[in-house]
Design a protein around this nucleic acid. Structure first.
Lengths: 347, 347
DNA sequence: AAATCTCTTTCCAGCGCTGTACATTATCGG
DNA sequence: CCGATAATGTACAGCGCTGGAAAGAGATTT
C-alpha cells in the first residue's frame, strides 16, 4: 500500500516532484494548485490536492525563498528580550508582522557594540527581507558606515543617520511633560534616575535634556547631585542608586525615571526607607509597561504609542523593501503621560 | 574604478561567482576560503580574501541552506512573548542557541488552538532544524497526530505524547512544596488562584493537584470555594478574581498562585482591600520571574531551574536533529521555592 | 473544415551555494 | 631522478522551488 511508504522509517521529505508523479502531472501544476492559481481545471485540482494530502506534502520554504528572492522574514534587533518594554514591543511587532505576512526573528544585542554591529554586517545576508533595529551603543556614524543595503528601520534615539529611516517619540518633549507634571504637583527637588555610570546613551541624553528644560522653565535651579547614576539597566541597579542617594542624605521630592524598571527599583528603595509615594516623593516611570499598573502604588509613566510606533516602522520598512531608495524618513509618534498613583493628577 | 561599481544605485548582491571571477579562481575555492577550509595556499587565500573584502561579499544563507539542508535555526513556540516567564525563557533560549550556533525564531501562539496547530503543521517546513514548543491548548493526542517529523521538544505539562521528547518540572511536587510551606507558616484556609473559567489547562491541573495533596496530607479539608477562577491569564484577571472573593466574604489566609502575574494581581487586590501580606494572607507565586523581587512585599515564588530546563531542551533537540528516532524522553528538571516576604521562612 | 482564440498544462532554466569526483601540482623517500 | 603520496584547485551536478515560454486542447468563428 502507499500508506506503508508514508510510514517509512524516515518519512523522508516529500517534494513537489513526488506529488507531481503521484498525481501524474507536472511540477508546475502542483505548484499552481499549492498557490491557488486560478486557471487549473477543477478535476485536476482535486486530483492534485488528493496527492498532496495523501503524501502530506509541505512546500520547502527555503527552496521557495531561493527561487523567489523573498524570505518573508524580518529581523527585530533589540537589546534585551526580557526587558518589559522590549518584550511588549516584540509582541506588537510579532502581531503586526503576522498581519502583514511576515515572520519575525529576534536578535538580542545585549547592548553590546559588537553584537549590534553584527546585526548590520554579515549576519543577516539573504536571511531576512528587512531589519528593524533598536540600537543602544552604535551611533549615527557607525550605522551609516555599516548599513549594507538590507532595508533597515531604526528605533529609538541612539542614532539617526540621514539616509536611514527612523521612528521614535519626542523624548525631550516627553521628559518635559513628566517634569512639568511633577512641578505642577508641587515638587521642587526633582531627581532624574537612569544615567548609566560614565556612559550616557542617546535616549537617556534626550530625556535628561527634557528634564532639565522643565526645571529651567520653572526657575528651579539644576542640581547635578540630583542626577542619579546607576550601574546598569536593571531594577536592582535603580534600587541601589536611590538607596545610596537616601543614605547620602540627599533630599528630593520627585523622581523622573528613565524607564519603568528603574522606577520599580526606586519605588522599592523609597518603600524600604520608609518614605511614602507620592506624599514624600512622587515618581514617574517611562514606557508604561504592564508593570506600571501593578506596582504599589501604581506608577505614573510616560507612554509611547506603541502600536503607532510599530505600524510606522513597518510602513517604512515595507516601502524600503518595495524599493524606495531615498533619504531617511524620520517619523515621530505620539506619547502621553499615564497618570497613576505614584504621581497623580493634581486637584 | 571598481569602487564606482560598488556604489552602484542598487549595490546589487554580490555572489560567490562574482568573487571567484574577480580573484580568478573557482567558486569552490572562494567557498573554501569563506569556510576556512585548511588546504588553501596562503597566497591564494589572501587574494581571495581581498576580492571578498573589495566586493563586500556576504554568503547568501538561503542558498547555503538549500544546498546543505541545515538551516541553523530553531523555532521557539510560546503562548505570549511578553509574559514575564516566557520572555525570560526566551532570553535564555536565545543565549543558549547562540552558544550552540543556532538562531531562534519565535512563534507566538497566544494559546490559540489553531495557531498552536500551525506550529506543528505547515508553518515550519524546511525553515528550521527543530522546534521547541510550549503548548497550552493542544493535548497529547493532537500533537501525536500532527507531529510531522521535524525534530520537536515539548515544554510544559499540557501534552506529552509517548514518541515526543519533553521537558518539565514536577508541578505536583512543586505545588505540594508551596502548599506545605504555607501550612507550615500556620495558614489553614489556603486558596488556589489561576483556574481559567471552565477550561483547566494541563499545567494548572497538576498544580491544583499538588495543592490539594498538600491540604489532604495535613488533614485540612478541601473547600472548592477556595479555588479561585480567573477569566484569563493576566494580572488584571487575577486581581478581579481575588477582589471578588473578598467581596463575597471569602475568608482565607494563604494563596497559591498559578503564576507570578496572578500573584501580583492578588497582592494588589489584598493591598487595595486593606489586608496585609503576609500577616493576614500569605502569597506564593510561580515562575520566580524578576517581578517577584520587586513587588511590595516581595514575592515568594516557585522557581523552575530555567537554565537547566533550557539546556535539557536543547540537548534533546540536538539529539533529534542528529538523527535520534527513538521513543520520547521525558526529563524533569529541578525547582525550588524562593522564599521572600510574601510568605517568609517560618522561624 | 480550416483558422483563430483562449484556457490549461508542461518544459526547463535558473536562484546561490556546497559536496563529490576528478585534475593538477607539490613533496618526498628510496 | 622516478613513482607514489599528499596537498591544492576545478568542474559540475544537484538542493526544491518558481517564472516565463511554449506547447496542447478545446471552443468559437468564418
Amino acid at each position: 500500500m502507499d500508506r506503508t511508504e508514508l510510514d517509512g522509517i524516515d518519512m523522508a521529505r516529500v517534494r513537489l516532484i513526488d506529488v507531481a508523479e503521484l498525481a501524474g502531472v507536472s511540477m508546475k501544476t502542483v505548484s499552481n494548485v499549492v498557490h491557488s492559481y486560478p486557471h487549473v481545471a477543477p478535476a485536476l485540482r482535486k486530483k492534485v490536492q488528493a496527492a498532496i494530502d495523501q503524501l502530506g506534502y509541505r512546500p520547502n520554504l527555503t527552496a521557495r525563498r531561493l527561487a523567489t528572492g523573498k524570505t518573508g522574514m524580518i529581523a527585530l534587533a533589540i537589546p534585551e528580550i526580557d526587558h518589559p518594554y522590549f518584550s511588549e514591543l516584540s509582541r506588537h511587532m510579532a502581531e503586526e508582522a503576522t498581519r502583514r505576512g511576515y515572520r519575525v526573528i529576534i536578535e538580542q544585542t545585549l547592548s553590546d557594540p559588537d553584537l549590534e554591529r553584527a546585526v548590520l554586517s554579515d549576519r543577516e545576508a539573504g536571511l531576512v527581507d528587512g531589519v528593524i533595529f533598536h540600537p543602544v551603543r552604535m551611533e549615527t556614524l557607525d550605522i551609516a558606515k555599516l548599513d549594507a543595503g538590507t532595508p533597515l528601520v531604526l528605533l529609538g534615539e541612539a542614532a539617526m543617520p540621514v539616509m536611514t529611516d527612523h521612528v521614535m517619540i519626542d523624548n525631550v518633549a516627553a521628559a518635559l511633560d513628566a517634569t512639568r507634571h511633577l512641578l505642577a504637583s508641587g515638587c521642587r527637588r526633582i531627581a532624574f534616575l537612569g544615567v548609566i555610570a560614565a556612559d550616557i546613551t542617546g535616549s537617556t541624553k534626550q530625556r535628561l535634556l527634557g528634564y532639565q528644560q522643565g526645571l529651567l522653565e520653572a526657575n528651579v535651579p539644576l542640581d547635578p547631585e540630583l542626577v542619579f547614576t546607576a550601574q546598569e539597566f536593571t531594577a536592582e541597579a535603580g534600587l541601589r542608586s536611590v538607596t545610596e542617594a537616601i543614605e547620602r542624605g540627599m533630599r528630593f521630592d520627585g523622581v523622573v525615571c528613565r524607564d519603568d524598571r528603574f522606577a520599580i527599583g526606586a519605588l522599592k528603595a523609597l518603600h524600604d526607607s520608609g518614605r511614602s509615594v507620592p506624599e514624600d516623593v512622587a515618581v514617574v516611570g517611562w514606557d508604561n509597561t504592564f508593570l506600571a499598573a501593578y506596582t504599589s502604588p501604581t506608577l505614573t509613566s510616560v507612554a509611547p504609542k506603541k502600536t503607532a510606533l510599530v505600524a510606522a516602522a513597518f510602513d517604512l520598512l515595507e516601502e524600503r523593501i518595495a524599493g524606495y531608495r531615498g533619504v531617511g524618513r524620520h517619523v515621530i509618534v505620539g506619547h502621553s503621560l499615564e497618570l497613576r498613583e505614584s504621581a497623580p493628577r493634581t486637584p
